[in-house]
Design a protein around this nucleic acid. Structure first.
Lengths: 125, 125
DNA sequence: CATACTGTATTAAGCAGTTAGTACAGAGTA
DNA sequence: TACTCTGTACTAACTGCTTAATACAGTATG
């Protein structure tokens, strides 16, 4: 568990985002146990309440569930897990397109740029 | 002049963004006069100080200039104007790629999505 | 029973963004 | 001259979001 924070977005939002990315990647099996509020807070050097807020929202979105006072777990509902991935992809595509259109940039030319930079990023990994 | 605000980003940031998009589009000729602080504030129903803050930052970035107490104008430096467009494009591409990579989404598949949704958006205009 | 974990709730504090009010200097115009 | 625009500067206060601090209840384990 390792999250790099930016200063712009609220920390709890970034935490949620991080979990969604992991889910989208398939890094979490359904029912997978996630760190307790306090433990994750320790790892990330943030306040337990900030984690709590993130977890609470994830619970409302059915991404995780909590039984009694056991550590929370990733949902077992595979439809939800799948939709997370679709949501992130669709979001990325929409943001991208609206950015491009807002400045009337020609798509083909931009696509080439994406292709090229993607490959460069690929090599850096 | 018409800006639709979201609740997430600061208003003054969105105002700057709006001007940059117009510049990138080529909607503003070099030296083009822009509304006064008070006038734009009236149009957008925001506080003049918020506009002032946006204009001040744009001036620091050399996007606009002000002579005496005349209304501010878009810069005449075409290199700057050009770089705004490049900056926005590069930003959009980078955000997109990092989103895609953070969830290990295969590029070709995503590219198809982009292509498709771009055309759909095209028709809506 | 006691300790140490869980999750949860409530309240306080801090902070960035925004608004509001006021003021001042310069320039054009009736 | 008086009025009305322009930009600029400064301070104060409000607001909502975010984070911090603390406390409480339940459960498992030794």
């Amino acid at each position: 568990m390792d999250v790099k924070f930016n200063n712009r977005d609220p920390v709890y939002v970034q935490v949620i985002r991080h979990f969604k990315e992991q889910i989208a990647k398939g890094s979490f099996a359904p029912g997978h146990v996630i760190p307790s509020r306090r433990e994750l807070a320790n790892q990330l050097k943030i306040n337990p309440n900030t984690v709590q807020r993130a977890y609470k929202e994830m619970e409302e979105q059915k991404l995780i569930y909590t039984e009694g006072n056991m550590p929370s777990c990733i949902t077992k509902d595979e439809a939800v897990l799948k939709s997370v991935r679709e949501e992130l992809i669709s979001e990325a595509v929409q943001v991208f397109i609206s950015s491009i259109k807002s400045i009337n940039a020609p798509l083909p030319e931009i696509m080439e740029l994406v292709q090229k930079q993607y490959e460069e990023a690929e090599q850096r990994d």
